[in-house]
């Protein structure tokens, strides 16, 4: 009997089966059952997942296609795509979030703040990599925002931008207005009503409010990006830089032609994970603009749109349809991720 290339459990079973006396049927059955005892170990996880993961996924797909689905008693009038039509058209609006507004908001936040913070993280990591003295100290300070509570820190960022007091009697205009020299004519950056915005028909672009959120996003996203990029930079072979120096390449050329390609797997990885996180943006917006994401979801996000229907059983179908749309968007990003970063290997 060969023991090579065999799992120890099989070997053990072979030993028992071949050396022992002829087994009765009952004994064989018991042995076979014991081999399946792994199911006992996974059972708790499996039961919980069945209730709170598998079942919800199936139900989400079903409810999204049930017309006039009512969450309270489970009634519906038929099958079809009307939930999706209502979501996109926004014609069942009852003073809540508008899907198109939320989609545009989410896309703008994500596709501006993620590249900006990645680029900034690259610059900071390159700078961090090029110094020797007190490198550790800078590293520690830059990593501090790594672990924060989005709702708590969002409130702190809101105080930087908020004007306290009434229009006739302003008490403090906030640091940002002071720094920008808007002391006498302050912008209330966190207020959706009075802050400057562009009206574009069905949707509005409250750009002043976007800036507040993006500043927070960049601040909170930097540590993770610096961590990944900095460790990638440290593993680059120094020979390339020596070669570039001999060639007389400028710092900028070196950055663009050597550093960027060498860390490009990490950059694309950060972009994709950042975009995926951005599509699920929720807590920071609530932290800065309050539970209603403005007054009436002017700063709403996709997730905010889904949650604004919770508790309103009449509109549960719309929430499910919205979550399915988010799911499809995230699947597309995942697919691109798999296409682009198949070979990301060096970070760790």
């Amino acid at each position: 009997m060969s023991f090579k290339n065999k799992n120890p459990r099989d070997v053990e079973a072979d030993l028992v089966l071949s050396d022992g006396p002829q087994l009765t049927r009952g004994e064989k059955f018991r042995r076979g059952l014991r081999a399946q005892s792994g199911w006992l170990f996974v059972a708790p996880a499996l039961i919980l997942m069945a209730v709170f993961t598998f079942y919800p996924i199936i139900m989400a797909f079903i409810h999204a296609f049930q017309e006039d689905y009512n969450g309270a008693n489970g009634t519906y009038s038929g099958w079809g795509f009307s939930n999706f039509v209502h979501v996109v058209k926004g014609d069942l609006n009852r003073g809540g979030a508008d899907f198109l507004q939320c989609l545009v908001n989410t896309l703008i936040f994500t596709f501006i703040s993620v590249p900006v913070s990645t680029l900034l993280a690259l610059l900071i990591s390159v700078a961090l990599n090029s110094i020797k003295a007190v490198q550790k100290a800078y590293q520690t300070i830059l990593f501090l925002p790594y672990l924060t509570n989005a709702l708590a820190m969002g409130a702190v960022f809101a105080t930087f931008f908020t004007v306290v007091g009434t229009k006739s009697h302003t008490e403090t205009v906030g640091i940002v207005n002071l720094v920008l020299g808007l002391k006498d004519n302050p912008i209330n950056w966190t207020d959706v009503l009075s802050s400057p915005k562009w009206e574009l028909g069905r949707i509005t672009i409250p750009w002043a409010n976007y800036i507040v959120l993006m500043v927070y996003e960049v601040w909170s996203g930097l540590p993770f990006k610096i961590l990944i990029l900095f460790s990638a930079l440290q593993s680059i072979n120094k020979q390339y830089y020596d070669a570039a120096k001999v060639d007389g390449a400028s710092r900028w050329t070196t950055l663009w032609h050597i550093t960027a390609p060498m860390v490009s797997p990490q950059i694309s990885y950060l972009l994709v994970t950042g975009i995926m996180g951005g599509m699920k943006q929720y807590s920071a917006v609530v932290g800065i603009f309050g539970e209603k994401m403005g007054l009436r979801y002017e700063m709403g996000t996709m997730v905010g749109y889904i949650y604004n229907y919770i508790g309103e059983d009449k509109y549960a179908g719309l929430a499910f349809a919205g979550s399915l749309i988010l799911f499809v968007i995230i699947m597309i990003i995942t697919w691109i991720n798999n296409k682009v970063t198949k070979k990301r290997t060096t970070y760790r």
Binding site: P56, I57, S323, L326, F327
Partner: peptide, 17 residues
């Protein structure tokens, strides 16, 4: 495979459950 699915999809049904 369930890791790829956004948590919001679970939350809605779980709320009803």
């Amino acid at each position: 495979a369930t890791m790829m699915i956004p948590g919001e999809m679970f939350t809605l049904s779980n709320y009803l459950t």
